[in-house]
Amino acid sequence: MVQQADCEPTYLKARDIADEIDETPKAVAQHLQRLQNELTGITLEQWGRSKSVTWLVQEETE
C-alpha cells in the first residue's frame, strides 16, 4: 500500500484494512488517527465517513 501511495494518492477504507488484519474498523481508525502525527513523508488524512471511514494516503510534497 505504501508503495502505491508513493506514486499517487490512495484511498483506503478502514473496514477493508480491518478485514485484512482481523480487527474492527473502529480500532483501525483509532490506529490511523494516531499515525497521522507520527508519519514522516506520508500524509494520512481522514477523508470520508459513509459506511466506513475512508483515508487518503499520499506522499508529502515540499
Rank of each mutant, 00 (worst) to 15 (best):
Q3C: 08
Q3A: 14
Q4G: 06
Q4E: 15
Q4K: 10
Q4Y: 01
Q4C: 06
Q4V: 06
T10V: 15
T10R: 03
T10G: 00
T10K: 03
Y11L: 09
Y11E: 01
L12Q: 06
L12F: 02
K13R: 15
K13T: 08
K13Y: 14
A14H: 02
A14E: 01
A14Q: 04
A14R: 02
R15A: 14
R15Q: 13
R15W: 09
D16F: 05
D16K: 06
D16W: 05
D16G: 04
I17D: 07
D19S: 12
D19R: 14
E20H: 04
I21K: 04
I21S: 01
I21C: 11
D22S: 13
D22W: 06
E23T: 01
E23N: 10
P25F: 03
P25R: 04
K26M: 06
K26Q: 09
K26C: 00
K26N: 04
K26G: 00
V28M: 07
A29G: 11
Q30N: 13
Q30M: 13
H31D: 15
R34V: 07
L35R: 15
Q36T: 04
Q36R: 07
Q36K: 07
Q36S: 02
N37A: 08
E38T: 12
E38I: 07
L39G: 10
L39K: 05
T40W: 05
G41A: 10
G41T: 10
G41I: 09
I42S: 00
T43P: 01
T43V: 09
L44T: 01
E45L: 09
Q46Y: 05
Q46H: 09
W47I: 03
W47K: 05
W47P: 00
G48W: 01
G48M: 10
R49C: 02
S50P: 06
S50Q: 12
S50K: 13
K51V: 07
K51Q: 12
K51P: 00
S52V: 05
S52E: 06
S52A: 15
S52L: 07
V53W: 05
T54S: 07
W55Q: 03
W55V: 02
W55M: 04
W55G: 03
L56C: 08
L56I: 02
L56V: 02
V57N: 03
Q58C: 07
Q58A: 07
E59I: 09
E59V: 12
E60D: 11
E60N: 11
E60C: 11
T61L: 09
T61A: 07
T61F: 00
E62L: 09
E62C: 00
E62P: 13
